[in-house]
Amino acid sequence: MIGWLNIGSLVLGLIAWILPAINITRYEKRSRNWITLSILSLSACSISLFFQIWSLYERVKAEDWSALMDTMSVIASVPAILLIGTIILNGITLYMYRSRTE
């Protein structure tokens, strides 16, 4: 089950970064659903982080201390990069489209 949580987290993390990139590339085409894609991006990031926390919980429940010790640095740093990247990309999208609505 831990493997599926990690794969799901990876896929959702990629979706969280791809959706704002789509918004940024569609800027010239006057995309109207940019808010929806931004909300989906933030939701995908949140679910991805939840999967990482659940994966950590499953390892603690199984008392797999060696796996926890080996992967803790990655479990601490990668979700932070995902969160910061998602916020930056969605912030760029918000800045771009906000100026269009004024």
Score class of each variant (00 low, 15 high):
M1V: 06
I2A: 08
I2S: 04
L5K: 07
N6V: 14
S9T: 02
L10M: 13
V11E: 00
L12G: 02
I15N: 03
I18V: 15
I18M: 10
P20N: 12
A21P: 01
I22C: 00
I22Y: 03
I24C: 02
I24A: 03
R26D: 04
Y27W: 13
E28R: 14
K29Y: 08
R30K: 13
R30D: 09
S31C: 08
R32N: 13
N33E: 09
W34G: 01
I35F: 09
L37D: 00
L37K: 10
S38G: 15
L40V: 06
L40H: 01
L40W: 06
S41W: 03
A44E: 00
I47M: 05
S48T: 08
Q52C: 08
Q52N: 15
Q52A: 07
K61Q: 12
A62W: 01
E63R: 13
S66M: 10
A67K: 14
A67M: 14
L68C: 04
L68N: 06
M72K: 08
S73N: 09
I75P: 00
A76R: 14
A76N: 10
S77Q: 10
S77K: 12
S77A: 11
I81M: 10
I81G: 05
L83W: 03
G85N: 07
T86H: 07
N90Q: 07
N90F: 10
L94A: 14
M96N: 06
R98I: 04
R98L: 13
S99P: 00
E102M: 10
